[in-house]
């Protein structure tokens, strides 16, 4: 499910089935040497999360990406967001990012870190198979949490 009116309506109606929230954490780096890399990361992360959404549409809600630049990064953001999502009825909250900044809070919240793969130069077939490979990395993390309940 996406965070839009029609999907949120079905989420409200099917709350017992949609128990997982996925939050992409995007880092926006505006220094000239890192800006392009930052764009690659954002592109990769959004492509991958939409692919995850497509595969597990009925189980999870993909939140809009939470973006922050270097000075706005705050370790409290995922923690607070997680608490609010738990209150809203999500049993599982996953943060997905390509930025190492968030990995050190991995003990308190579920952070999935993935290396950004530059997708811009690939044709569609390669892109899809890369995303499928990456999805296979993510599925075990989701399913172990889902199995715990």
């Amino acid at each position: 499910m996406y965070f839009n009116a029609s999907d949120v309506t079905s989420f409200m109606a099917q709350k017992e089935f949609i128990d997982t929230a996925i939050v992409p954490l995007v880092s926006v780096d505006l220094t000239p040497e890192k800006m392009k890399q930052s764009g690659t990361e954002a592109d990769f992360l959004l492509s991958l999360t939409s692919f995850i959404e497509q595969q597990f549409k009925g189980r999870l809600l993909l939140m809009p990406p939470f973006s922050s630049s270097a000075t706005l990064k705050n370790e409290d953001l995922p923690k607070q967001l997680e608490a609010q999502l738990h209150n809203a009825g999500f049993k599982h909250v996953f943060f997905i990012t390509c930025d190492h900044f968030w990995t050190n809070i991995g003990e308190e919240v579920n952070v999935i870190w993935l290396p950004a793969i530059p997708l811009e130069s690939m044709d569609r077939g390669v892109k899809n198979s890369i995303l499928e490979d990456q999805l296979r990395q993510v599925i075990p993390m989701l399913s172990t949490k889902w199995a715990q309940i």
């Binding site: 079905s10 099917q14 089935f17 949609i18 497509q54 595969q55 597990f56 549409k57 009925g58 189980r59 399913s143």
Partner: peptide, 26 residues
């Protein structure tokens, strides 16, 4: 597309029912 809530089903991914389509969501 699963008729429940729209996930992607997979063939034979449930080891106890190898000859069925399986939706890993629910």
């Amino acid at each position: 597309v699963c008729k429940h809530l729209g996930c992607m089903v997979d063939w034979g991914s449930d080891s106890t029912h190898p000859d069925q389509f399986f939706c890993s969501c629910h």
